[in-house]
Design a binder for these strands. Structure first.
Lengths: 174, 174
DNA sequence: CAGTGGAACTACAGCCCTGTGACTCCGCAC
DNA sequence: GTGCGGAGTCACAGGGCTGTAGTTCCACTG
């Protein structure tokens, strides 16, 4: 709701400030995504979601997750919470990592058997439903983004160098 | 759509003949459902899908599955194939066993988080989609029935005492 | 009615996956 | 340098099977 204006020369929001600064360290990434640190660690080791700003290089080093990584982490969590096996989640993300651009906001992730799609309209989904082959799994990515943003604001209200407080729903286009 | 006519004085189809006779023994049930015998056994032991005509009572005894049991087995398999964890499947069936009447044919099974629903129209599903909270899993039960019928006809064409050879459901689909 | 063969259930060990706990280790900021 | 916090390691647990070697019961034969 509210003031998520698409101002071309707006201030960087907390998310961007964070990222520009240094990204999110493992522990915070886990908190924001709502998972345990051990899961985050396990997923990183097993190549499910790796920190894209800086990978670990031995004990004592620090992983650094980008905002997009957070979205992925949270999406994984959502799928898991919905009772989907990590095995399938891995397949999904193998695809997703390549095909997901920045248009996260109005899109549904649709999984049908072993094929993954990114669908915008309800029409298309109804169509899939009608020709119903097997189970459909549908994850609205908009919700994922909202959750991540909310978690960031709640856990780390001032970003890093303060910046814009509005939760940045980033709006339509992209 | 099509020829699954509800003819009041039709012959019993192979399915009904089978069941009236003695139901389906474990091994055949597994074949028809498209699962391994070990899975069937495991599910029976852990109370996921139990043979409703006769449960095992020691080595040498025989489980006897009803046609409806076959539908459940196949539905479980579909859910599993779709990457859903057995844990969730158990929850689903706890509900389903009570709320699934005989109208299996035009219904979608909708799972959202921990709540399970049986929905007929696309409207309702679109609505759920629109207010999208979390992941939706949708399984068209019609397909399940078709698959079971097809499997029975293919694997055991003569039912038991012959009976009606016409593939009951299928026809048009395909 | 006893004997027998085989189908089908049972027991049990073992495998893989997904974590979790409890340490240990070590890079980096100070 | 040194200490802190986060990465690494290892052992182990629980779920969900699978494979295999028993056990039984049941139907059929004689």
């Amino acid at each position: 709701m509210a003031s998520a204006s698409i101002d071309p020369n707006r201030e960087p929001n907390p998310v961007e400030a964070f990222e520009a600064d240094e990204g999110f360290p493992g522990k915070k990434a886990a908190e924001i995504a709502g998972i345990t640190y051990r899961q985050l660690d396990y997923w990183a080791r097993t190549d499910l979601v790796k920190p894209s700003l800086a990978r670990a290089h031995g004990s004592g080093s620090r992983r650094r997750y980008s905002y997009r990584d957070l979205l992925e982490l949270r999406a994984v969590k959502s799928l898991l919470d919905a009772g989907i096996r990590l095995e399938l989640v891995r397949e999904v993300f193998a695809y997703l990592t390549e095909h997901l651009d920045e248009d996260v906001t109005r899109v549904n992730l649709v999984i049908q058997g072993s094929s993954v799609m990114v669908r915008t309209g309800e029409e298309e989904i109804v169509d899939l439903l009608r020709r119903g082959q097997g189970v459909l799994n549908i994850l609205p990515l908009a919700g994922v983004k909202e959750e991540v943003d909310a978690a960031i604001v709640e856990l780390y209200p001032e970003g890093r160098r303060a910046a814009d407080e509005t939760p940045s729903a980033r709006a339509v286009g992209e």
